[in-house]
Nucleic acid binder design. Structure first.
Lengths: 250, 250
DNA sequence: CTGGCTCTTTCCGTTCAGTGGAAGACTGCT
DNA sequence: AGCAGTCTTCCACTGAACGGAAAGAGCCAG
């Protein structure tokens, strides 16, 4: 759209989106210069586009002069289906579960070959964990991940099993062993991990079904898995409740 | 950028943002035609821009063929400061509070002359309420709203007091009465409502302070306000905890 | 199967919105 | 004062974006 474009073929929209994409978990606040670098745009262009984004509310400028994601994008994000359907419906069940166990409660879905955490409840009494809402973790080292993987299409299972990076000393890195665990997960109806993601943390998880489909996984993180039957029971009650609410709700 | 523009002066960015803005709480899924109408853009333009937005992940296309807010925008929204700082820090305290009271717990900030709900916990035992995360409600009819209003700049108080729309039969619509309640809120350190927003629901709320500034309000919604001292106590413990965590955290 | 309807996609000539180098304005730091 | 960093404004050039028109998909009723 402009004569002296340095990268012909790039659309205005792509540039604006590149600016938004410059923000991530480790870069929540960026100066104009950083934005221009990370988005690969010249300063004046960055300045103009950012000005528009701020005017609309997609970005906001802090008193310090740097930029952050704006409130309006936060609003918009809440309208995403991942939030609307699943999270909203599941929320009360997660709280019930938290109240019953006082453990960290996770609600996760599969995103490609990773686990995407859709919601997380953690009180003060809970074990510290690495996940946070919106974060992605490997499937083979988490309870919810194993559940989702066990119910995933074969191609996904192959992709994940072919590369099992080590996270802790206890992470399962042998495809055969993991495959056997996945089979057990299908038979038993739940999966567990023992310090495979972070030391001192164990987890237990069950599938959430909408009709026949497994649409999410519900998990707990605890210091140990003693009293396993009670945990599985609580999880399954909550998972069934969510599944039922999902089916009747739409 | 284009010769035959029907509305000269409009930037590409503004058009793209108009498309995003076409989504709201009541329009979470839109067809291409609806998008073009709501954004005020011609069909071909809409088609092209939406294509780019989908390619980037800002929007997603459902199997049914209509569009919704995409997962990547959801991700981005989670990076917004409103979420990052306040919500993350407050989360465990809200759960503690929920565990202690089993009431609906609200965390809200002021957004202009309205209350913006940043987080909400509600179990099955809780009173049904109209708010949801991201929604905005009038300040004069909610507990958290009264707290935030009492600590708001005078201009904001004037603006709100000059227009007090009735919501239920018990909504306070007399500026004088509300002004007195705000004074009492400052003295007592908490505010209450009694069926002013929805019948059968009362609320009680306290300010969350970061140093001297009131940055948010923390509230409970209950069927009745019996045992008020215990509720105020629990709220203040949580509010102080959040305030302290905010100060030390940054 | 056909006709009519709505929604979606592709085409393509026109032209003005967007571009970025260069220069100016602010900081804060030495 | 001088310097180095960040931010903002200016402006001539031009190809990216525009949207009317028309073709393609579905879908339902008759």
């Amino acid at each position: 759209m402009a004569g002296n474009t340095s990268t012909p073929g790039a659309t205005v929209t792509s540039r604006a989106l590149a600016l938004l994409g410059a923000f991530d978990e480790h870069h929540r606040r960026l100066t104009l210069t950083q934005l221009s670098e990370r988005a690969g745009l010249p300063m004046p262009t960055t300045h103009r586009l950012v000005g528009e984004l701020v005017a609309w509310g997609a970005l906001s400028r802090t008193p310090a002069g740097d930029y952050a994601v704006g409130r309006r994008l936060w609003d918009l994000g809440l309208l995403a289906p991942v939030q609307t359907g699943l999270r909203e419906v599941a929320s009360p069940y997660l709280h019930d579960l938290y109240g019953a166990t006082l453990a960290t409660v996770h609600l996760a879905v599969r995103d490609g070959t990773a686990v995407l955490y859709v919601d997380r409840l953690a009180g003060h009494a809970s074990v510290p964990v690495v996940s946070s809402i919106g974060s992605r973790l490997p499937m083979h080292a988490t309870g919810v991940g194993k559940v989702l993987l066990a119910h995933a299409p074969v191609e996904v299972q192959h992709a994940v099993l072919s590369d099992l990076p080590r996270v802790t000393a206890y992470t399962i890195t042998q495809p055969g062993l993991l495959r056997r665990q996945l089979g057990k997960t299908l038979r038993d109806g739940y999966a567990t991990t023992t310090e495979e993601m972070s030391l001192g943390a164990c987890s237990i998880a069950v599938p959430v079904r909408r009709g026949p489909d497994v649409v999410a996984a519900l998990g707990l993180v605890l210091p140990s898995l003693k009293d396993r039957p009670k945990l599985v029971g609580a999880l399954q009650v909550a998972a069934h409740g969510i599944g039922r609410a999902l089916t009747t709700g739409g």
